[in-house]
């Protein structure tokens, strides 16, 4: 198919307006598409040309902001990150992300995601309060220490992992793979001293021990993050702490306490005559 060839695809979109509808229903739209058209572009076409009342979230259009997560043909995807060609079909069913209440049409309520995220203290916790209040320098972190958690920093909080998680579907109070993944991300950070605080949070009911390890979260993540791995590593840490076999390491030092760097070697003189 050439890049200009136009094909028509039927978008079967779940509609729900809490002010008018008692339950969700489907509406179909015919959308002209060409090679490379994304699901989000199809939705924008509907919004601009067919029905301006259609509600969905979008922002960056490049898989960075995590706003346009939705269920496309019964699987969670980012609409901007998903090309229509991938489905090899003339019909597409779009629904809002499951395991979350619906605000309108394809817009889910994400408060629970962010509440759970905040509950695991997703920030560096240090004992030196004065430095935390008024930082004087950065903390030293070596590349291999960064590698311990780097992939988990790529989380964009789109909620696809929660939509894919079978435990989140049945247990509404479950912290979810996003929050647990971020709990591990900060526990594994060599600059952090808040492990004990986070372990107390994640070892409660509806948290780290309630994961069924279906690993659907890791499969659904559009950024290649592996929350299932994070949950297993978090379990390992919590268990080691409970059994008192966890190695304690000194927290990262401030960059100001680094020994003086060796003086730089002088730049050799030019061997070619400068003009």
């Amino acid at each position: 198919m050439s890049s200009d060839a136009v094909k028509k695809i039927t978008f079967r979109v779940q509609r729900f307006d809490p002010e008018k509808d008692r339950k969700p229903h489907f509406q179909e739209f015919i959308v002209p598409v060409k090679r490379g058209t994304t699901v989000l572009e199809g939705l924008l076409y509907i919004k601009e040309n067919l029905d301006s009342s259609l509600a969905f979230r979008t922002s960056c259009r490049m898989g960075v902001c995590g706003s346009c997560g939705m269920l496309i043909n019964e699987y969670p995807h980012l609409a901007c990150h998903t090309q229509l060609e991938e489905f090899h079909a003339d019909r597409l069913t779009l629904k809002p992300l499951p395991n979350m209440p619906i605000i309108k049409d394809l817009v889910p309520r994400l408060e629970t995601l962010f509440e759970h995220h905040k509950s695991v203290k997703p920030y560096i916790i240090r004992g030196d309060n004065a430095e935390m209040e008024k930082p004087t320098a950065g903390y030293i972190q070596k590349p291999h220490e960064l590698d311990e958690f780097l992939q988990f920093t790529y989380c964009i909080k789109c909620g696809l992992c929660i939509a894919a998680c079978p435990t989140s579907a049945s247990d509404l109070a479950f912290l979810g793979p996003q929050a647990l993944g971020q709990a591990y991300r900060y526990c594994a950070d060599s600059r952090d001293e808040g492990q004990d605080q986070r372990y107390q949070i994640v070892e409660k009911d509806h948290a780290v021990w309630n994961c069924h390890f279906a690993a659907a979260c890791s499969e659904a993540c559009p950024k290649g993050v592996d929350p299932a791995l994070a949950i297993q590593l978090l379990r390992k840490g919590v268990a080691a702490k409970a059994l008192r076999v966890k190695k304690t390491t000194a927290p990262a030092l401030l960059a100001t306490s680094l020994p003086q760097a060796k003086p730089k070697i002088d730049v050799p003189e030019f061997t070619v005559k400068q003009k």
């Binding site: 372990y199 070892e203 409660k204 009911d205 948290a207 021990w209 919590v238 268990a239 702490k241 409970a242 059994l243």
Partner: peptide, 9 residues
């Protein structure tokens, strides 16, 4: 750590 001990048990 109650839940952790229960899970380990």
């Amino acid at each position: 750590m109650k839940n952790t001990y229960l899970q380990l048990a």
